[in-house]
Amino acid sequence: MTKKNILKQAAAYPHIVWAIIFIIAPLLFVAYYAFTDKEGVFTLANLGQLAQATYLEVFLRSVCFAFLATVICFVIAYPVAYFISRTSPSAQKILVMLVMLPQWLNFLIRTYSWMAILEDTGIINIILGVLGLNIHMINTPGAVILGMVYNFLPYMIIPIHSAMTKIDPRVLEAASDLGCSPLRVVTKVVFPLSLSGVISGITMVFVPSISTFYISQKLGGGNFDLIGDSIERQFQTQYDYNMGAAMSFVLMLLIIASMAVMNKYSDDEGGMLV
């Protein structure tokens, strides 16, 4: 039995070998660069430099933007996912595919299109112009956050929706039979049961938002540098691999820490739900 089991485990070995070579080893390179200077001597100077006020601000800004984008995504995605999950199975299939469909088109091109929509002479302002309004949108923090929301919204809708479809409709019926108002059904029954979807949705939106670099350049007019921009610049134009690696390293820790916190929270919740 055990022998057989070991054999079965062996199915995972190709992946483990792959992960060691192509996931773990490259990260060691990042760590190596983060803690050495250009001559390869151990140093903490790179990390020390990140503690400067300007970089702290970049980190703070990135976290804020990503956080807001995640919150907005959630606020939009939750009702949409809920409504989609209440439609017929065939309609659901179409709607879910339609949610994913934009992701198949190039992300750079879609971001480019947003520029044409948000600009002062863009489509929204042309429409508003009829009403005699003109709102400046491009090159503002709002535009950057909108770009993030747009690009990552499907990754919030899909997991939440799939969590919701798993909910037994009889549970909802029972809840309303027992006197829950529709709102209470959602908050007391649907939400707790779809929490796992919410958590993975938050992960799938927050992580890419915090490290994005193209969106802020195109929709923010290069005025709002995010960590992703700084990292890209370190590697691409300044050739300071050590500094870039240090930033990546900190960003990684930041993300892992926030994931751990969220995990813990979801764990508690999950525990209480049982």
């Binding site: 490259p26 990260l27 390179f29 990042v30 890419p208 990292i231 990546s248 960003l251 990684m252 892992i256």
Partner: peptide
């Protein structure tokens, strides 16, 4: 969970 740019560069 790693930013793409870190994965790419590493």
């Amino acid at each position: 969970i790693n930013p793409e740019i870190v994965t790419g560069i590493s």
